[in-house]
């Protein structure tokens, strides 16, 4: 909540915190007076800052809960949409959409997220299938390596498409770096339905995720319908990732770092882990977005840069820690 208000208030043009709260309340409750509020501030808040903050919140929440679910499902604290290649898959879907100016009939504006989700879903299955081919037991490292191989390959595909494109170049690159700026309410409408459905599915599978984090066989012994649940959870995770990527580009490491942080603070029980990841993830991305546009204002840094700057070292530390635990 605090993150939301701060995220709205601060920026190249500073809006007083109190005014921000007043404007927000006015939006929610029509009877709150808007006396003494600068019209420009009013515009900034409701048309630029508010959607931006909400979008950042949704994207952060989506990536964090998807990451938490992937980690539980694969019993792998290193899994996240980014390391598994799901984000890259979604990117390919999005770039394809932008590149070919695709717009599927009926779904119209939803072409971008739907294709992103579809591609991310295909990617996760290819990655897991491939990892299983390499090694039946699907060790942590194998899955991560496979994810990285797919990421690189898909990244190359994207580069290829960028190289072949002319005018759309800037749009694609700007989108790729990951940003929640200047997206407006339209994008919120795009992500919201997928976010709600995906999050709800995952929240309802908390117990199953708990069981599955002890291994698929164990979960089966405990009475979980493993095949079905796994499919559902992977679909929901891909849905969240795909829609998040569709609206904001690839923002790495949120899905990795946030579940870790939550687990460290409140324990690994998915019944708490999933909802807390949603809250923490959204707050984190709103704050990161805030940093990205204020730290060297008026220039805005891509948000993906900030998360990667924080995320990569954390990833390295986790990797070292798990290695040490295994050898010790």
């Amino acid at each position: 909540m605090l993150a939301i208000i701060l995220g709205i208030s601060l920026g190249t043009v500073k809006v007083p915190v109190l005014s921000t709260i007043q404007i927000l309340l006015a939006q929610l409750f029509p009877f709150v007076s808007l006396d003494g509020i600068d019209q420009m501030h009013m515009n900034i808040v409701s048309n630029i800052r508010l959607p931006r903050v909400i979008l950042a919140g949704l994207v952060g929440a989506a990536l964090a809960i998807a990451g938490a679910a992937f980690q539980g499902l694969l019993r792998n604290p290193l899994a996240d949409p980014y390391t598994l290649g799901v984000s890259s898959g979604a990117s390919v879907g999005a770039v394809v959409t932008l590149f070919f100016q695709l717009s599927l009939p009926v779904i119209g504006a939803f072409t971008l997220p739907v294709l992103s989700i579809l591609f991310s879903f295909i990617t996760i299955f290819l990655v897991l299938g491939f990892a299983q081919k390499i090694e039946r037991s699907m060790r942590v490292e194998t899955i991560i390596l496979t994810g990285i191989i797919f990421s690189s390959f898909l990244g190359a595909l994207i580069s290829l498409m960028i190289a072949l494109t002319g005018e759309e170049l800037r749009q694609i690159i700007g989108w790729l770096l990951g940003s929640v700026s200047m997206r407006g309410w339209v994008y919120i409408k795009i992500i919201l339905p997928f976010f709600i459905v995906g999050t709800a599915i995952l929240l309802f599978n908390g117990k199953e995720l708990n069981a599955m984090s002890f291994g698929e066989d164990r979960a089966h012994h405990l009475g979980v319908n493993v095949q079905r649940r796994k499919l559902i959870i992977l679909m929901a995770g891909s849905m969240l990732t795909g829609s998040a990527v569709a609206v904001s580009g690839t923002i790495g490491f949120v899905g990795l770092v946030i579940p870790h942080l939550v687990r460290m603070l409140w324990g690994p029980d998915h019944k708490h882990l999933l909802p807390l990841s949603v809250l923490t993830g959204s707050a984190f991305l709103i704050l990161t977005d805030l940093v990205s546009r204020t730290i060297i204002a008026p220039v805005e840094l891509p948000i993906g840069v900030i998360t990667a700057l924080i995320g990569a070292p954390v990833f390295a530390i986790i990797l070292l820690k798990t290695r040490a635990e295994r050898s010790g």
Binding site: G72, V140, A211, R218, R263, G267
Partner: peptide
């Protein structure tokens, strides 16, 4: 058994009630 996450003993046993 793989136990990659630090569940408490009670949480682990409770899963048996699933």
């Amino acid at each position: 058994t793989a136990d990659p996450f630090s569940y408490t003993v009670k949480e682990t046993v409770s899963l048996g009630r699933y």
